[in-house]
Design a protein around this nucleic acid. Structure first.
Length: 291
DNA sequence: AGGTCAACCTGAGCGC
DNA sequence: TGCGCTCAGGTTGACC
């Protein structure tokens, strides 16, 4: 599930449960995620108080007292489930499952956090492409995971001029360039496809040729798509269908993603959504709108 | 140097 | 019911 809108939705959902609270117990049932957990991971977290939750690109950053930050990446299948005593729902929408049963004993439940309120937050990741690391809060910008990241697409500083300078000289197709986290940080396959559709730019177009009005439209489209997805609480796909809490519903607003063979949704367009493979990943687009 | 692709891992869905 | 194949929201390291 996790591109920028999903990670941000999770951040907003977890923040009130974690900020200002102490981690009383941490249970690392499995250490071999994409990167092995730091040594003594659980022991290093137990007793620490959470200051704030931030997000950079698709990373969730949990600032702890003692100037350390827990870095979390959800990979392809990572998710958090919240279990509160007797509580089965929370206001608002997030891509979190709220339940009072079955806490943390599933086959792919890898890490369980318990706070001083008795809230249990379970990290589940069946493909184990996610990661959790610890780093000094003050040195995050220089951390190898963050040093090369491009701008946040929702920042004011992300403009057509910014995008232009990032794309010049790039011979790769615009689709591949936008997936490159060094160009823009936080976009994934869904929102790249949706943004290119909204800007009516062919995914096959050479990145360096996206200039002028095209760059302006693309930047606007990226921001609009991300904001709409955020307002919907992100997208919930596939393995999320069995969840029993409030979930994001942006998947119902997809114009191209996973819509191969379906009619283009743009009014008056008679095109059919096509699926092609670029860089080993599916691209969905309307050959009429995005010719 | 930059671009492309396989690999990491597990499960779901499909055709037979 | 089961086998074999393809595909999945991401990232990275090896290769041209």
């Amino acid at each position: 599930m996790p591109e920028l809108p999903e990670v941000e939705t999770i951040r907003r959902g977890l923040a009130p449960l974690l900020s200002g609270h102490r981690l009383i117990h941490v249970d690392a049932k499995r250490e071999d995620l994409r990167v092995s957990l730091p040594v003594n991971f659980a022991a290093r977290l137990e007793g620490r108080r959470v200051r704030t939750l931030r997000r950079r690109a698709k990373y969730l950053l949990v600032d702890l007292d003692g100037s350390e930050t827990l870095i979390v990446h959800l990979g392809m299948s990572g998710r958090f489930t919240v279990h509160r005593r007797g509580v089965t729902a929370m206001p608002g929408r997030f891509a979190l499952r709220m339940t009072s049963i079955g806490s943390g004993s599933g086959k792919h439940d890898h890490i369980v956090f318990e706070t001083d309120e008795g809230t249990r937050i379970v990290f589940t990741d069946h493909r184990r492409f996610g990661l959790m690391l610890l780093a000094n809060t003050g040195e995050l910008d220089r951390h190898p995971l963050f040093a090369g990241l491009g701008p946040e697409p929702l920042d004011q500083s992300f403009t057509a001029a910014t995008l232009n300078s990032l794309l010049e000289d790039k011979r790769a197709p615009i689709k591949a360039a936008l997936l490159d986290q060094r160009v823009v940080a936080g976009l994934g396959n869904i929102y790249v496809c949706e943004s290119l559709f909204r800007a009516r730019i062919s995914p096959k177009r050479r990145a360096a040729s996206v200039t002028g009005v095209r760059a302006t439209k693309l930047v606007r489209a990226i921001k609009a798509v991300l904001k709409a997805a955020l307002a919907a609480g992100g997208s919930s796909l596939r393995d999320y269908v069995h969840t029993d809490g409030e979930l994001g519903n942006f998947q119902h607003h997809f114009n191209v993603y996973d819509r191969e063979g379906k009619a283009c949704s743009r009014k008056g367009c008679t095109g059919t959504i096509r699926r092609i493979v670029q860089g080993g990943r599916s691209t969905f687009y309307c050959p009429v709108c995005q010719g």
